[in-house]
């Protein structure tokens, strides 16, 4: 639950990478956003949009070229250490001690975050169980698969209790069961009042987890709000799937005359996308249903993916 106190405030943030061999790259170009304490915040955007640069700045890994950033009330430039005391981070790159066991990876991480000796083992046991790492707990990471390494990396942040957790593409490379365990763990962290800042390409994860979302492109914020506000930014689009007993030529003609933005047919099933308000779609359906026997019908509204594609200049088709 958000208490509306900002955990992160970013104002007019600019980051320019100066390359010797090429012209400067403006990774962030006047980006502004606000993340409220206690919420799960999703940062979405295509590759090269500036997500990782923003995450690196917020986690004190790199400095902005200009602009103002506050994390948990601390100015980023002057209070890097105070910020690091209150955050934990899962970076996009794999980051594990390859020559240590799963167990030692967790204990070492806890030691770095000043978890008292007597608590470390207990927490490690809990996290190992939570992430299904029991069978490999004593194995060195170098001997584990990429997915398991990622699982250990994510599991580490659940060893500590920090008010702000950064997760950069946390579920990348995980199988569906572990992805589910990770999402559950994130939800649990959120319930405990922690602020979760996640970047992801997997839009249904963002849809499932996030209280608020920002979409960035070319270093700027192009949309911001909760899921419904974000969805409202694009014209309403409904996907309709109808399975008929049979499809006559006249029905097919009728269907193709409708103002659809997408139409596909697979045997007796047709899939269509239509723009418009809800009632207009229902009207359309009743017209179609009069001329044939409908076995199955399904109507879905715009997904975050539709919004994403629409806002970033792509086409639904």
């Amino acid at each position: 639950m958000s208490d509306r106190t900002p955990a992160i405030v970013v104002e007019d943030l600019v980051k320019v990478y100066k390359e010797k061999s090429s012209s400067p790259v403006r990774a962030l170009d006047g980006l502004s956003l606000r993340v409220n304490a206690g919420e799960v915040f999703g940062l979405l955007g295509p590759n090269g949009a500036g997500k990782t640069t923003l995450l690196r700045i917020l986690t004190t890994l790199t400095r902005p070229t200009s602009g103002h950033v506050e994390v948990l009330g601390y100015d980023l430039i002057d209070h890097g250490l105070e910020i690091r005391r209150k955050i934990c981070v899962v970076l996009q790159e794999n980051s594990v001690e390859l020559f240590l066991s799963v167990w030692d990876n967790l204990l070492t991480y806890a030691r770095f975050h000043s978890i008292p000796t007597h608590e470390r083992k207990e927490r490690a046991r809990r996290v190992i169980e939570q992430f299904g790492l029991d069978d490999v707990a004593n194995q060195k990471l170098i001997d584990l698969s990429g997915g398991l390494k990622r699982r250990v990396q994510v599991a580490k942040v659940f060893m500590v209790e920090k008010p702000l957790v950064f997760l950069d593409e946390a579920t990348t490379g995980m199988d569906p069961i572990n992805k589910r365990a990770t999402l559950d763990a994130i939800r649990e962290q959120s319930r405990l009042g922690r602020t979760i800042f996640l970047t992801t390409h997997i839009l249904h994860e963002a849809e499932e987890l996030c209280d608020s979302i920002a979409i960035v492109n070319r270093g700027r914020c192009v949309a911001r709000g909760d899921l419904n506000q974000i969805k409202a930014l694009v014209e309403r689009v409904f996907d309709i799937s109808i399975t008929f007993d049979s499809i006559s030529d006249s029905l097919l003609n009728d269907l193709q005359c409708l103002p659809l933005i997408k139409f596909t047919r697979n045997k007796n099933t047709v899939e269509m996308s239509v723009k418009g308000e809800e009632f207009a779609s229902l009207e359309l359906l009743s017209t179609i249903a009069k001329g044939a026997t409908v076995q199955h019908i399904e109507v879905t509204s715009a997904t975050l993916e539709d919004v994403f594609v629409s806002l970033l200049g792509g086409s639904r088709q």
């Binding site: 690196r56 986690t59 890994l61 250490l81 690091r84 970076l91 980051s95 770095f112 975050h113």
Partner: peptide
């Protein structure tokens, strides 16, 4: 890079 995000 992860080390550089630790509280030190």
């Amino acid at each position: 890079y992860e080390f550089l995000t630790y509280p030190m």
